[in-house]
Each structure stands twice: as C-alpha cells, then as structure tokens.
Design a protein around this nucleic acid. Structure first.
Lengths: 230, 230
DNA sequence: CATAAAATGATAGTTTTACTATTGTATACA
DNA sequence: TGTATACAATAGTAAAACTATCATTTTATG
C-alpha cells in the first residue's frame, strides 16, 4: 500500500499488520520518532496517539501493548536488514567477502542503500541499539519465542553463521560469534555515546567496526592456517 | 552490621544505604528473590513490601524508584565481584594467568568462593545477566553517570583492561574486548537458556566460557607472536 | 536507665499508566 | 445501496508509581 516491499512479520508481534493501513504506517513512523526522542520507558500509547491526532483505543487495535510494538519494530528491522544484505551481497562471489560486507552493514550506523525511506532509518537503528534487547530480556520471552517472534533475527543469524561455517567448517561457535558481533556492536555504540570509559572511543572514527572486523579477520586467518597445517 | 565486608556504593544509587540497617538488608535480599522470580517489569515496591511485611513508604525511604534499586544492585554486584577477583588473584604472579582467572570468574554461573552468603548469589548473577543492562540502557544514563552510578563497573573494566595492556601493550581495543566479553557472556547465557538457535548450545557444557577463553587466547598468542616477529 | 533521634509502620491520598467497552461516523467494496 | 471495516470520541477501571502525615518502635548516647 505504502511500501515498495512489504516485509513478512511474525503475526504474534501485532494484532493487525500496521504496514497495511494509513494509520498503521503513521503508528510505525511516529513510534520510532517518539521512542528515539523520549526512550522506551517514557513512551506511552497516549503520547503516541496525541502525536498522530488519534486515540489510544485506535493504537490498541494494532498492538496489545508497547512491548509488542517494540517486538514488531525489532522483527521489522531484522527483516529489512536481511533483505538489504541479500540485495547487496547477491553479486559477490566470495563467501568471505559476502560475510564482511554483511557485518559492515550491521555495524555501520547508517545504511547507505536505504529502500524504506518511509521510516527514519537512523532513528530506528538507534532504537534497535539501545532498546532492542529489551524486547528479548523479559519473562515472557519463552511464550513469544514459541510463536516465532524472533524468527527474523534467527534467520539472519542462521544465514551469516552459515557463511562462516563455509569459511571455517570446523569452527564450533559460529552462531555465538555472529550474535556476539551484532549485540556487541550495539552495546559498544551505546557505550561510545554515553559511557566512553567503558570503551576505546577515538575522535572521528568508528572504532567499533575496526574492532569487530579485526576480531573476525584474526579468527578466520588463524583457523584457515590451522586447517592448512593439519 | 550484617556483612563481613561492606561495599562502597555510589550514593546516587540509593537514598539511604540499605547495607546499614535490618530493613535495608531485607530489601536487598527480597528484591533479588522477587526480581529473579517475576522479572524486573512485573516487580513493584508494593509486592516487595508485602513480601517482607513492610510498607511501600518504607521501601521508598531507601530508593527513589525501582530503577534506582536496580542500579544499586548493579553497582553492588560489580563491587562484590571486583573484590572477589582481587582476593582470588592476589597470589597469582603472572598477569596472563590473573586475567584468565578473572574472566572465568566473570563468566561462570556460580562463583565458588562466595563471601556474601546473605544474598543469593546465583539469583543475583541471573538478574545481572538478564536485567542488568537495563540499568544502563535508558535516557537518564548521562545524568546518573555524571554522579558516578557506574563507577564500580568502570573500575573493574579499567583493572582488567590494564592487565590486558600489560600482556599486549600495543593493542588498541583493550576496553572494548573486556566489555565485549562481559556483556557477551551475559547475553550468550540468556540465549542459551531461552533462544538456543541464536547460540551454539551443547548439552552439559558451558560453551560460553570456551568461546570467549579460546578467543582471548588466540588474540594473545597472535599479538605476542606479532610482537616477536617485529 | 532516661531520653533524644532515627527508623519504621499505618494510613490515606494523587497522578499517571495501562488498559477495556461502547457507540457513532466515515470509508471502501461489492 | 447495503455491508463490513476502520477509526474517532468518550468514558471508565485497576494497578502502578509515587507523596504526605502522624503514630509507634527501635537505637544510640550520655
């Protein structure tokens, strides 16, 4: 209706797909704006409804509560970035090169090739970095997980760890490595902005990318050498 | 009063130090119990007060709100584990050995040498793993950080990254590596328990420790070799 | 042991959040 | 033209997140 490409979203992350309607798209756009501005804790459906000249009751037709909305944005983000990675690595032959391209896209703050201009991608990425993990870290995780809430994220991790397996077939921790890089990059970006003494921030440079790329290169070179010497 | 050793806690993480009084200790013990049981979102001062046969108003004399209580537990945990690491590495000469000992203590689920039996250390560790990061990831982080709320965590990171600097003097990312291991271990443990497809869980084995220890060993060997060959 | 100070309990109240229910109106679509 | 769907408007409830006051108990101290 409003999007070039509509993403598949686990249906337990919403009561009604907001991508389908005008109000739904307004909810998506403005919840991203508002959560980025005031933070998830201070965010309420009442404030959101006021922002878009609608009512609480209308928002509740799309989402059971704000936590479900966050899970939706989370799933939507991972669906989107997986698609972007798919497109931007299609032409690459070498698996290692594919993997590095994908990792860089995940770490960099702004994706260059944004196909979903109807939401502010920079703000969404900032939300995923600082609020995203809250959609997982709670007591209801097992219930929603059963219903597939995190499938988009899992698919991406499966794809990238599959590539890593191709590069280092005998490596036992490929999923841990991928999730450590993804989650680590989020936390390190947050630390760099707010708690620089917990990180190695340098001016005018995104150390986070250098750190994780170096990390991955070291691992690959070591394991390939190891494989050769056996 | 009740503790063998009283920990220094940033005073912005409480209104009155709960370590000093009987009720305060009850609040510490039972908030850990209750948060572990029902999760931080469902946790309220009313429920806590009922559990200890006290009143909401009394709890509010120690903490402004539940978020401040979480920050207190966070600071207390890092103070405690830094002390434990201090004690258990005192007798070790070799810096590399010290570092590995510390990392293992941070990653393992239950610390063997528990000097603070008055709180359930296993439950506290589980809270730090699954709720701890929420004390950082919010819009008030800059304010409380100015007042030293996270100093205990920072001190620990400074200590370990200092050791790493001794081992690999020219390594540029020592703090990032330490925080990546600490935060990574928390998330990986949570994933192993709830979202195993995001990790490389194996039965009857804590892969998380193997993963990070292997990685650290690789990094050190690589950099030492590199230093030698130059 | 007496007494002041501190800590806690008991009670009551306010504001905000997090919802639910109902009814009327506009829009789409068939 | 009728019918379903979507949304707005309004109202209401229960719980959460506090704040205030005053009585009572505990503790420190001289």
């Amino acid at each position: 209706m409003f999007l070039q490409i509509k993403l598949t979203i686990p249906n337990c992350t919403c009561l009604k797909d907001p991508q389908e309607t005008k109000l739904g798209v307004l909810i998506m756009q403005n919840s991203i704006e508002l959560i980025d501005e005031i933070g998830f804790e201070a965010f309420t459906f009442k404030k959101l409804a006021q922002k878009i000249n609608s009512t609480e009751a209308s928002v509740y037709r799309y989402f059971e509560n704000k936590h479900q909305l966050l899970m939706f944005l989370y799933a939507w983000y991972w669906g989107k970035i997986e698609y972007q990675i798919h497109v931007e690595t299609l032409h690459i032959e070498d698996t290692e090169e594919k993997l590095f391209k994908a990792i860089k896209m995940l770490i960099e703050k702004k994706n260059s090739n944004d196909i979903y201009a109807f939401v502010d991608e920079l703000k969404l990425k900032r939300i995923i970095e600082s609020e995203g993990i809250k959609s997982i870290l709670n007591k209801k995780v097992d219930d929603v997980n059963k219903n597939g809430a995190f499938d988009n994220y899992k698919n991406l991790v499966a794809k990238l760890s599959g590539w890593l397996q191709e590069i280092i077939p005998n490596y036992a921790f490929s999923k841990m490595l991928i999730t450590t890089i993804i989650e680590g990059a989020h936390i390190q970006h947050f630390f760099a902005d707010h708690l620089p003494r917990l990180t190695d921030k340098q001016q005018d440079k995104d150390n986070v990318e250098s750190f994780f790329i170096d990390f991955l290169k070291l691992l690959i070179s070591q394991n390939i050498n190891y494989g050769q010497s056996n």
